[in-house]
Computed example of a mutant assay.
Amino acid sequence: MTDLTDKVAIVTGGTRGIGLATVTALAEAGATVVLTGRDEAVAKEAAAGVPGGRVTGVALDVTDSAAVSSTIRAVAKEHGRLDVVVANAGVLEGALVGMMKDDLVERMLSTNVAGTLYTVQAAARAMMRKKTGSIVLLASIAGEQGSAGQSAYAASKAGVTAIAKSTAKELGRYGIRVNAVAPGVIDTAMTAAMGEEAIAANVEQTPLGRLGSPEDVAKAIRFLAGDEAAFVTGQVLGVDGGLVL
């Protein structure tokens, strides 16, 4: 297992699903982890539930660039370093292209694209001083291949892929790696809203014959975060069981 002893990590959107599984995986590998969520009480409760005692929870809305900057800067200052940032915070809403409302498009882009950019920007500033660090973004198979009824979401996740590839080129000179994972259909609360028929159809199209688990994605993120991936940057790692939408 990847050794993250003495590393300091931040996971945005870390109160449930893939985010919480990632927090747990990083903590199990020895990292000190700060998880964020929109609600402070929920974030603190989630952190308290992770074994090991090296996890804290703070409130953060990633669409607020000033808050993102100050939160990441405060964590780096408190611990004297910042080694890993996982930009997991995101939203998923579906709508046929002819029925998309303006507020849905705004939420998708402000959270998934702008929020990710703000997080990468603040992480890079904190990591440049040490000339080392790993940033992992949450893309999606939908952003890679498209998905009917999810045009806004797919567009936002394609944007995340572009952010990973572009910032990897910019930040490599500072020893900072930027990668992304692109999950397929993962067994989370978001997926449950798809309905049983849609879930069954996706399982049928997945060569491995099951939904992914949050832990499947978290282990891939943990790999990219650690020194075992020291020569890996600008990559998008599919965690999808071979699914082709």
Rank of each mutant, 00 (worst) to 15 (best):
T2F: 12
L4C: 10
T5Y: 10
V8R: 09
I10C: 02
G14M: 06
I18H: 05
A21Y: 01
T24M: 09
A25I: 05
E28Q: 07
V33T: 02
A48S: 15
R54M: 07
T56D: 12
T56M: 10
T56Q: 12
G57W: 03
L60N: 08
L60D: 08
V62P: 07
D64T: 02
D64N: 03
A66I: 06
A66N: 14
S70C: 08
T71N: 10
R81A: 12
L82K: 13
A87E: 00
A87I: 02
N88S: 09
N88Q: 04
K101Q: 14
M108P: 00
N112F: 00
V113M: 03
V113C: 10
G115A: 04
T116A: 08
L117K: 06
Y118M: 02
R125Q: 12
S134K: 03
S134T: 00
V136N: 01
L137Y: 02
Q145E: 14
G146I: 09
G149L: 06
G149H: 04
A155S: 15
A158M: 09
G159P: 05
V160Y: 05
T161C: 10
K165M: 07
T167D: 10
K169A: 15
G172S: 04
R173H: 13
G175F: 07
I176Y: 00
V178N: 01
A180R: 02
P183D: 09
G184A: 08
V185N: 08
A189R: 14
M190N: 05
T191V: 10
A193Q: 15
I199H: 11
A200T: 10
G209P: 08
L211G: 01
S213M: 07
E215S: 14
D216T: 00
G226C: 01
D227P: 12
E228P: 04
A229C: 01
F231M: 06
G238C: 08
V239L: 03
D240W: 08
G241F: 03
L243Q: 04
L245M: 13
